[in-house]
Design a protein around this nucleic acid. Sequence first.
DNA 1: CTGTTAGCGCATTCAT
DNA 2: ATGAATGCGCTAACAG
Lengths: 340, 340
Amino acid sequence: MASNVTITDIAKELNTTPATVSRALNNHPSISEETRTRVLEAAKRLNYRPNTIASSLRSGKSHLIGVLIPSAKINFFGSVVHGIESLASQHGYNVLIYQSNEKREFEQKGLQAFLNARVDGILVSMAKETHDYTHFREVKATGTPLVFFDRVNDDLNVPSVVIDDYKGAFCATEHLIKKGYQRIAHIAGPQHIKLFNNRLRGYLGALQAYNLPIDFNIIYTGDISIEAGKRAVEHFLTLEKKPDAVFSVEDFTALGAMKALKEHDISIPDQFGVIGFANEEFGEHTTPSLSTLDQQTVAMGEAAFKLLFEQINMKTSENMQPRKIVLDPIPVFRQSSAHP
Amino acid sequence: MASNVTITDIAKELNTTPATVSRALNNHPSISEETRTRVLEAAKRLNYRPNTIASSLRSGKSHLIGVLIPSAKINFFGSVVHGIESLASQHGYNVLIYQSNEKREFEQKGLQAFLNARVDGILVSMAKETHDYTHFREVKATGTPLVFFDRVNDDLNVPSVVIDDYKGAFCATEHLIKKGYQRIAHIAGPQHIKLFNNRLRGYLGALQAYNLPIDFNIIYTGDISIEAGKRAVEHFLTLEKKPDAVFSVEDFTALGAMKALKEHDISIPDQFGVIGFANEEFGEHTTPSLSTLDQQTVAMGEAAFKLLFEQINMKTSENMQPRKIVLDPIPVFRQSSAHP
DNA sequence: CTGTTAGCGCATTCAT
DNA sequence: ATGAATGCGCTAACAG
């Protein structure tokens, strides 16, 4: 069964030494073409499998990267992992995955596991619950390259990849304006979370850019849920000066808004325009289909890996300030904002 | 900077030997309580991190499991990975992830990478493209525990976890019957894929069980797409004896069917009932919401890990025939099948 | 270009 | 209960 042939076995077979076999196997420059082929042939014949564990121990490089996400069940992170893994395996890295389940405790355990496994680098999207960052500081202290994506923390001085929420919100609002909607509302998310604040700012920025008045009566702040979207619309409809379109901070909230509008027999997009943010899968299949902004999940994963890869291959001396990659969200304009 | 304290360092600090430190750290039975605490204290003080690589090399156990999936972008697999990782980390295993992207070539590369990393076990959902199974045979030949989930192959004699497609299809069809629909159609998937065939059989089984006639005119075979669903309905509506409900092999096809029905102003569920299979996220948010069967993704991941864990801890002598776990799909009956 | 030597960090056998 | 010795499989520095 498990043959477990080693380079020593190959060496014996060919009356040479493990060192030579190792060199041949790793395409070392100073090795004759002849011995290389002989070794490769013998390796194949004996069904040799390089033991990466031994190699890692000796070389100090594990060719492992750790990816810490809140949950693989969340679509967004699955897509990001897709981007990460694709590039990583192209570059000869294996990907370790760990879920924080939004708990700081698990987050810490995951980082611990990664460090113990001597990963060559770590990619993290932070848990919501996390407010104390000492565990990340410990990682930095070990010198292990670290990159944040999506859920980042700027104080930590770690390279990161994020989406340009301001620009996305600006773009969404601008789109509604250009489509001819007159009075555009916003359903905002919890403002202590930076990205939701950025989206609010993008909304305000677009209104200003087009010299439209800002009315805080049509800015509803709720949580991220279908229910919040419904409540927002109910609120808007009580107003004297009702809005005729809404930019919702997030697709699920937009969905709630659409449901409430339907209940009131307000037709979308004719009487009321709706646009969300995230490009969740369901948006393509609602009636009408939901306009939104795509978050570039796969590109985010790829960018995150690239940043990490740079860091891994960087002499520690080159200690410039950490790079921050900001991805543009991609507009996906569908029916819900197609003002006639 | 990276301290990289070893057990030897701890030993020196305490004027003892690496062996003692190792024993203390691993809760070896024959070690005095006093030295244990002294070692643990010193380990913490020196910021010691066990080197799993060295440990793996020495012990022969990597505490790594490899998970090979078609793509992390696909929701289903993300959820399964969630289930796997949760249990795995509870049991002290780290999870390596690799995507085949539905290509046999990558599948083989992934398995190779896993074997080289000396994983303690491998979990696989096969690529669609795969028809030649020698790479799996090679894995078996190494003695590395292997478990299939969802996309399995029975010839390989490998333990597996699947969903009971027959039962799910039976249940869906039965539901439509009990709701009072009279003439129930089926949109089937490519029949060379076993699970689709099982669903067709479940549909037929339910009709028989309730003494309903089987009419092949209302069994439409297509691929798995929204378009196929639309075409199926178009076909059904040309018939003289039109159906008044459909069990669709899969949610996206069901969605296509709903769209076509809407275009024909046929009201769902009053005039026509629809039920799908998979419990895709969008189903909750369509109008009307889509009845379906949940595939128990997280439970599948957990079951797969459990099976693998059993195998890992099994003496190779206990070579009974491989276990096969069959999960029951969970009915999720929503509006689209709510016959008045 | 190849062989020799050494050791990565740890767990385990055999002493004591 | 602890210490001494050994080697897992590989790579790398140094000789030749």
